[in-house]
Design a protein around this nucleic acid. Sequence first.
DNA 1: TTCGATTTGTTCGTATGTATT
DNA 2: TAATACATACGAACAAATCGA
Lengths: 256, 256
Amino acid sequence: MVNTLAAGNLAFNPLYKEVKIRITGSLVAGEWKPGDAIPSEARLAERFDVSIGTIRKAIDELVADKILVRQQGRGTFIATHTEDRTLFYFFHIVGKDGSKELPVSEMLSFRRRKAGAGAQRRLNVARGAQVFRIHNVLRLSGRAVIFDELVLPAGLFPDLTDEVFAGREGTIYGLYQARYGINVIRISERLSAARPPVRVASVLRVRPATPVLVIKRVAYSFNDVPVELRTSWVNTERHEYLSDLWKTSPPPLAAG
Amino acid sequence: MVNTLAAGNLAFNPLYKEVKIRITGSLVAGEWKPGDAIPSEARLAERFDVSIGTIRKAIDELVADKILVRQQGRGTFIATHTEDRTLFYFFHIVGKDGSKELPVSEMLSFRRRKAGAGAQRRLNVARGAQVFRIHNVLRLSGRAVIFDELVLPAGLFPDLTDEVFAGREGTIYGLYQARYGINVIRISERLSAARPPVRVASVLRVRPATPVLVIKRVAYSFNDVPVELRTSWVNTERHEYLSDLWKTSPPPLAAG
DNA sequence: TTCGATTTGTTCGTATGTATT
DNA sequence: TAATACATACGAACAAATCGA
């Protein structure tokens, strides 16, 4: 494979950006599966005909994007949605007492239907496209805290059934990844406060006038392809949404 | 078990981590002021007696932490809270129509008092320590959307008065930075839904039963020192809290 | 258990390109 | 134009972690 970086190309990308794109290309093409190790830096350098340093810089960014994970002495792996470390990256509800706990999910309903106007636009699917609409209740310490409504474009999840969904092992995004090769790498969430719909209030066992937190999420895969809409209604009497943003690991200690 | 010699024991940091710590040390010591350029990579390499590559790696992380900003051809600068780019890093309320707009703030009250029990703990100050308690209303497109309550440890803001606070130019964090050398580098926010206190409802012009978004924020400076508590009540009829988390710039384009 | 091969992590050095002043 | 500063790319050497023979 020859590295043809024609000079006339618009949008000059640095080499390491090109390498990054080609690596993610192999990911979406399925050349390497989630959990797999990708080739070593030395082999990638040979394959792309660039130096190891350039490979490393590309991988650095993919690690920052949480798409790859590196382990000294072992290799570089495709991040999976099954590791404890990544679970709380997409789950932000914590106890007001500071407790972090993963929810137990129970499916309440599973339907196939035509996408509504809003879902069409946000999922970027054609008019009349089919979607799955799934309702779940999430429990924390046995208590129903979250009511979830998922909308999935049926075209991306060919043989999905309620049995497959409810019978999954691990998280929902783990199912997307393992069974459909769909890798959720980014989410965008918009939060507001509102009164819950009666159905939600009933499941969460709150009075309809009780304020609840409403989270509207869009989950994206590579190339900013939206793969899931999710609306969550959260009873915030005992729990909160935690937004704790910092970039690298704990901030540096600095002597004044 | 074999004791693997004196090699990798505790207290061992990679060189670039040490450099990162020493650079932030110069920041907190005030050797360089916000907005200033820090010495060039070459000079820092000489000063710390390490290679330029090591300097670069340390600065890379400080840039990822949004503590420094680099500009090719110009230099490396201490990030300030006055740049449009950083403003929305700490302000997350956007219109439901997608509009992004910076709020106009108006101070409603300014008091000095003893810290309550909760503030003592979260601000890590002694019993009986003084705090400022400030109320603001924030308007978007002329509409009162947010009611803010700030609690500041008085010890960190020696000569702060209502005139200084209300007469500031720029943002609140810009005031902390420019006048008190206090650099907010990280915030932690916890969100819930609730009914507003009557005072808040009155300012926001909503009925007391209306659900509002409640945001409890702690702002941190270097070394995880808490410097501000803030509670925001947000009318989410026309606005939302946006949590859009991804790491590097836009995700890579990948051909399948 | 030890040892060696493999892989990533750290550090150094050099050269060249590009943006700014 | 020239000097400065960051950006990119290359290469080399050794350290540290992992794993299997």
